[in-house]
Design a protein around this nucleic acid. Structure first.
Lengths: 341, 341
DNA sequence: ATGAAAGCGCTAACAG
DNA sequence: CTGTTAGCGCTTTCAT
């Protein structure tokens, strides 16, 4: 076990003071009028012995950890995994590390996570919040902590946020289905009450209203297990034989829906047309290919990191809140195209 | 901005010493013969004001951070995302947090990541290492840091590891294809040189040898972009029209393969049979459903965390290395079943 | 049973 | 231009 080199060791070796070394290392040589020659000498030696300051001590002293806490709904979900991957990459480029955790939409767990992040003194928070953490997030924001919400908003909390205009996406998708001649378009969603889900539902409702049609909505309980969700959709399809198109509010519901449809032996799009929220390999490659409302993940990640870093580094812009709403894009594929027999 | 409560504050308020509070908080009241009554009083007050010790200070003092560094190849890949999710969950249950990063198989990036983790004093490491970090990982192990490798081994490095017997998986899959009557089974893999890939290839080679058949292997350069990989597979299929079955060594190659097959207008399994490594929604739902060699992810995660915690907490078992090799399971679906016309 | 005090390693204000 | 020094908040030994 090799002995850790300390700042003291390097100061001793070079016969200068600890302060000098610290100043040089933190780029404050100039403003403290330390000679270039000396600064150079310090840097060279530090490099030579591979000295790395103890970040814990540094953080304890400065109060900055250069760690960002990232809270997503489920890291195993392709949407969140992709966004998390992009955020990680971009944060790393700017010198920040990520600690992430999944909430699984569990309010209590999220609360705990938020507490942990505070204990660990993360510099900033990126959160896709479940309902019920308005208090905690609100407190964070009030205390001036850099926070960026994404994917969904928290009613009653004014915080930085990067979301997608789900209503625009679903209304466009619904109109697309109706214009293809499908007449009974159902909307399958989750009863989580989260803002992005409400928005998506509103977009559907509005388009149906425009066409003078009544809504046909299945709301699945978000606490159900996979198999139970498939069952619900299965039952719904059997109970509504006239339904000839379904718009799913989120990626995993579509996956369950495909499963249910396949069990019923229905053909897509002949018997039933499909549109999903979120794109993925599965939807691109499924046979038939699935029409989706795709979220601009790269742009989202850029905005999230951009907003967070501004809050993190631009201490002057106090009390300024940035909210960004990005447009999704409808990628029309085979699953929603009317086939003439 | 509410003032942070310190241990000093609570000691002052209760009119006891800081040490007493600290001892009680760390469950060392008994062994220091602190009266139950006092201990109780401290706990109650701490609870009341919601005091949380500063983890940075604590870590600086104790040298433990209760953070595990997790390095995967790509968090956006469903295999790694799922394993990461499971590891996170299990670690959390045991009081550990996860910092994760993706390597994208970049040796230099991984080196940096490892350095960062050391600077941040993570308590343990879980790594799916790219080749080229044998030095760094070896140094970690020699210095007694708890390390668990997974998915692949590092040649020449004796470290704890949890891997899957890929050779068993691919040989079984190859035999399955051959016994179905497919005669020209190709193996599509990546030239990364990683042990898991070598193992998978060996399993294929062995099964082919058993049947007295010669190998047909496509090795795609692991640095290529998605579209280029698809192109390679596309070319390969055109150049080998007699090939009637393909075994893909990893999930994303299969996805690219499906893309290439679909562009060529080939039917599965009539024109070409398919088996993939790794299971996913896509393979379960694809039409036809895709036969896969599934890795036992839950068991892997259990073993990884179990091994790491043993190394972390059982300081006595010095120098003990645990290597676990888990069996995969062949899930036979439609894509590899011979259809009689 | 309890308190005083010595650090963990680093930063930065201040005094030369 | 450089050195001294006072902490950041906590743990833990040792003396009482």
């Amino acid at each position: 076990m090799k002995k850790k080199t300390l700042i003291r060791d390097i100061a001793q070796h070079l016969d200068v003071s600890i302060a000098t070394v610290s100043l040089v290392l933190n780029g404050k040589a100039k403003e403290n009028r330390i000679s270039d020659a000396l600064a150079e000498k310090v840097l060279t030696y530090v490099e030579e012995v591979g000295y790395k300051p103890n970040q814990l001590a540094k953080s304890l002293r400065t109060g900055k950890t250069h760690v960002i806490g990232l809270i997503v709904e489920d890291i195993a979900n392709s949407f969140f995994a992709t966004v998390a991957g992009l955020i990680e990459k971009k944060a790393l480029e700017r010198g920040y590390r990520i600690i992430y955790c999944s909430t699984n939409n569990d309010t209590a767990k999220t609360s705990d996570l938020l507490t942990m992040f505070q204990e660990r003194h993360v510099d900033g928070y990126v959160v896709a919040p479940p309902n019920g953490v308005e208090e905690e997030i609100g407190a964070l924001v009030r205390n001036g902590k850099p926070v960026v919400l994404f994917d969904r908003l928290l009613p009653g909390v004014l915080a930085n946020a990067v979301v997608v205009d789900g209503a625009a996406g679903t209304s466009q998708a619904t109109r697309h289905l109706l214009s293809q001649g499908f007449s009974s378009v159902a909307f399958v969603t989750i009863n989580s009450g989260q803002t992005q889900m409400l928005g998506r539902r509103q977009g559907y409702a509005q388009a149906m209203r425009e066409y003078g049609l009544s809504e046909l909505v299945l709301e699945v309980d978000f606490l159900l297990e996979r198999e139970q969700m498939i069952q619900r959709i299965h039952e719904f399809l059997r109970a509504n034989p006239l339904c000839d198109a379904i718009l799913f509010s989120t990626n995993y519901l579509s996956v369950y829906g495909l499963e249910a449809i396949s069990r019923l032996g229905l053909r897509i799009p002949e018997d039933i047309a499909i549109v999903s929220f979120d794109d993925s390999d599965l939807f691109r490659l499924y046979s038939p290919t699935i029409t989706v409302i795709a979220q601009p993940m790269e742009v989202m990640a850029d905005n999230i990191i951009g907003t967070l870093l501004t809050a993190l580094e631009g201490g002057d812009e106090k009390g300024r809140t940035t909210q960004v709403q990005l447009p999704p894009s409808l990628l029309i594929r085979q699953s929603s195209i009317r086939r003439v027999h």
